[in-house]
């Protein structure tokens, strides 16, 4: 225990002070913190709450579960689901599975990158879109496929991709009142 505190204090920087509200996370921790083997579940729920895993929250989880932060980081960086950076309003999951690859997923990716001016893993400057390539969404017979905020778009073509992105940009909350510019 004292060893852990020492470690945590050693790593502590002012930028890591707890800035997020933890009331929802506390409910999760109440259920899982004493249940061995629950780290992945805790991180999944934390990501549901905050949209990503903020540094201060990882430290907070460490304090509550008495599991050291490097171990938590180790888990968080091992699995593709976890994000250490915030994402845009629309999270584009572009399927790069085998079937999608064979049916032209690369062209779709190029189109998205060109339209939004970002690369895989990046977020647009206006914070509207994030592009994430994923290994397989399991909708292979409708390839190429992309999923945006839970909705699946099937049989993509570069043209279709562009028009979907333009429509979403118009609908974006962050763009409210600025439609004329699009």
């Amino acid at each position: 225990m004292s060893e852990l505190n020492q470690f945590n204090n050693m790593c502590k920087k002012s930028s890591d002070e707890l800035t997020h509200d933890t009331s929802q996370l506390d409910e999760v921790l109440k259920v899982y913190k004493n249940k061995p083997g629950s780290m992945i579940t805790i991180l999944q729920k934390a990501q549901d709450i905050y949209g990503y895993l903020p540094k201060d929250i990882i430290r907070y989880i460490s304090q509550e579960t008495l599991i050291k932060t490097p171990i938590i980081y180790g888990v968080a960086t091992f699995y593709t689901q976890f994000r250490l950076q915030p994402v845009g309003e629309y999270l584009i999951l572009l399927c790069k599975g085998t079937a999608c690859h064979v049916n032209g997923a690369n062209e779709i990716e190029q189109t998205i990158c060109d339209e939004l001016n970002i690369q895989n893993g990046e977020t647009t400057e206006d914070g509207i879109f994030t592009l994430n390539n994923v290994a397989c969404l399991g909708c292979c017979s409708l390839s190429p496929v992309m999923m945006i905020n839970g909705e699946t778009y099937a049989k993509m073509t570069p043209k279709k991709a562009r028009s979907i992105l333009r429509d979403l940009r118009k609908k974006s909350k962050l763009n409210a009142g600025k439609e004329d510019q699009v």
Binding site: P36, G37, S38, M39, I40, T41, L43, Q44, G74, V75, F78, Y79, T80, Q81, F82, A135
Partner: peptide
């Protein structure tokens, strides 16, 4: 139910068990 967090190697039995225990798979 345990929801996996995305790692192909967790299809391997011993990796899957490590993942079930909340560790890197």
């Amino acid at each position: 139910i345990k929801a996996g967090a995305g790692a192909f190697v967790c299809g391997e039995e011993t990796a899957l068990i490590a993942s079930l225990e909340g560790q890197r798979g």
